[in-house]
Design a protein around this nucleic acid. Structure first.
Length: 210
DNA sequence: ACCCAGGTGGCCC
DNA sequence: GGGCCACATGGG
């Protein structure tokens, strides 16, 4: 067992099955509706607390916007007012609308999109404004169940704290994790979720100490 | 009155 | 390739 597998085992022992939002994100297989909710969440959670994302998602549900097709049919201005609690709402409304438009026009559904190769999908997603490497990979891993490891701020902190590497750029870290773990979307989903859960609990302890 | 939160794009050098 | 700023809300 290498150091990455050991870290995963330790986190799993400490926190168990990822709870909260992660119950849906790590669920397999997902219904079309569930894949869509994860996809929306991937945009809305950019640099934002999950609590605020939930407020935004609830507003969308109350307004009967329950699918990417509904998003594509609505006015970006109306979307913006609904997702206000998630912050950066004017930008995110544009991002969501453009992503929904892309998926509906090119694939018609996420179920259809899932049949495509992850490599090509990733490049297509990265062309869209507002979708960088982390958001693209979150959609691939958590909405489409593709074995792509997601790198985020918590992963970088973990790498630094445990001195797993000196470089922390996205591509390098993604390769590092993928080369040291078996290619398994279930493992990638749970591992990344646990890294975030652990990171939050660490920063929470630091806050208490201050 | 601060500080923080699963990022991204646009600019600069 | 990296540093800095804007984007914005809700909670500690």
């Amino acid at each position: 067992m290498n150091v990455f597998e050991k870290i995963y085992q330790e986190l799993k022992k400490k926190y168990g099955k990822p709870a909260g939002q992660w119950r849906l994100w790590c669920k397999r297989p997902k219904t079309e509706r569930e894949m869509e909710e994860v996809t929306m969440g991937a945009i809305l959670t950019q640099r934002t607390n999950w609590r605020n994302v939930e407020l935004a998602i609830n507003n969308l549900k109350k307004a009967k916007i329950n699918s990417l097709k509904e998003i594509y049919k609505s006015e970006p201005q109306k979307l913006a007012s609904l997702i206000k609690p998630s912050g950066f709402y004017k930008a995110k409304a544009r991002y969501l609308f453009n992503l929904a438009k892309f998926i509906v026009k090119n694939y018609s559904s996420l179920g259809r999109m899932k049949k495509a190769k992850p490599k090509g999908l990733r490049e297509e997603l990265l062309e869209l404004k507002g979708i960088g490497p982390e958001t693209a990979d979150s959609i691939l891993l958590y909405a489409l169940d593709k074995p792509v490891f997601v790198i985020d701020e918590y992963t970088r902190r973990l790498v630094k704290e445990l001195k797993l590497a000196n470089k922390t750029n996205y591509q390098f870290l993604q390769k590092l994790f993928e080369e040291n773990l078996r290619k398994d979307e279930r493992l990638y989903q749970d591992f990344h979720a646990l890294i975030v859960i652990n990171g939050k609990s660490v920063s929470w302890r630091k806050k208490i100490k201050r």
